[in-house]
Simulated assay, not measured.
Amino acid sequence: MSTAAHSDQPEAVTVAITTGEPAGVGPELTAVALREAQSRWPAVRFTVLGDRALLEARAGAGAGWPANAEPVDIEHHALAAPAEAGKLNAANGRYVLGLLDAAIDGAVAGRFDAIVTAPLQKSTINDAGVPFTGHTEYLAERTHTPRVVMMLAGTGERPLRVALATTHLPLKDVSAALTIDGLVQTLRIIHHDLRAHFGLAAPRILVTGLNPHAGENGYLGREEIDVIAPALERARALGIDAPGPYPADTLFQPRYLKDADCVLAMFHDQGLPVLKYATFGEGINVTLGLPIIRTSVDHGTALDLAGTGRADAGSMIAAIDAAVTMARHKRQLQRHA
């Protein structure tokens, strides 16, 4: 996924950006990233969702709001309470969800071709009385999608991509959450979206085991034998290139990854530490399987950096680039269908 603008015939797409937790870095990173995005994607319209006064005030940390001119719109959503950089206020938890709801509704209705989400603070939303696990799960619930897949990715011509078979679960619950049917569905989603949104004609997905040494032939666990291997056999029968299961501690090497388009890891902290070590601050988060396109940053709210002007907008820029590229590719497929 290249972060450079590239299209002989630019597709006219609209991208919505939610500015996330008002006490965090989201508002200022949006301003910085949009200045870059406008130069990269001059034909794209951007709609920024958030409190107008907050965005204009916080943009000062990033040398000013990019524009009131075309093609950036601010869709005003009023804060519930004043927001101070670095200081969480549960009164604004529902404000954050309101931004996300408006973006989702707009994308489902066709107003937006993609949405980009700045980081939010889960604790603030929960403290506001709304049970909330994360963006991924909330997007699935709001779009009535039975299964979605979290994938983080680097940038460049041959980016490292890591998808997850399970997401925000306690480690003790991971084994029970892995099923043959579930893994096959996950692989089908990854295969489909890598083709539909990333332009990969025949994606190759390397799959990890769950246990150390991929179970050591059953001596260190039977999930590889009883669940993962049968799922891979079924997926391959569907035309999905999904070899494995591989020991996770040796899979993330250039000699294995050079021919891979994605790695499917079995749980959150099996795959993401490697991905974030390699790409942190420049990577993105993509939710696969949704009826809409959604990308996000690879980091949190960085409360200690909010309002200082020292936060790095690299991941936000990459998320916007990815959203535009995916939306344009989807439009091209629809045009030629």
Rank of each mutant, 00 (worst) to 15 (best):
G98C: 01
A90L: 03
N92I: 11
W65M: 07
A107E: 05
I104N: 05
L55V: 06
A53L: 08
E75I: 01
A69M: 02
A91I: 08
P71F: 00
V108F: 05
P71Q: 13
G93N: 10
L54N: 07
L79G: 04
G62F: 08
D51R: 07
R94W: 02
G64H: 11
H76L: 03
A67Y: 01
A83N: 12
D51Q: 11
Y95R: 06
A61R: 06
A80S: 14
P66G: 04
A81L: 04
R94P: 05
I104E: 10
V96A: 15
A90T: 14
G93S: 13
L100H: 12
R94G: 03
A63V: 01
R58A: 11
A107K: 06
A67H: 01
G62Q: 13
L79E: 05
Y95A: 08
R94A: 12
L55I: 04
N89V: 13
L54V: 07
V96S: 10
N68Y: 01
A67L: 11
L54A: 04
A109C: 01
L100I: 15
N89D: 15
P66F: 04
D51W: 04
V96R: 05
A102Y: 09
D73A: 11
A69Q: 14
D51F: 10
G64W: 12
V72E: 08
I104S: 08
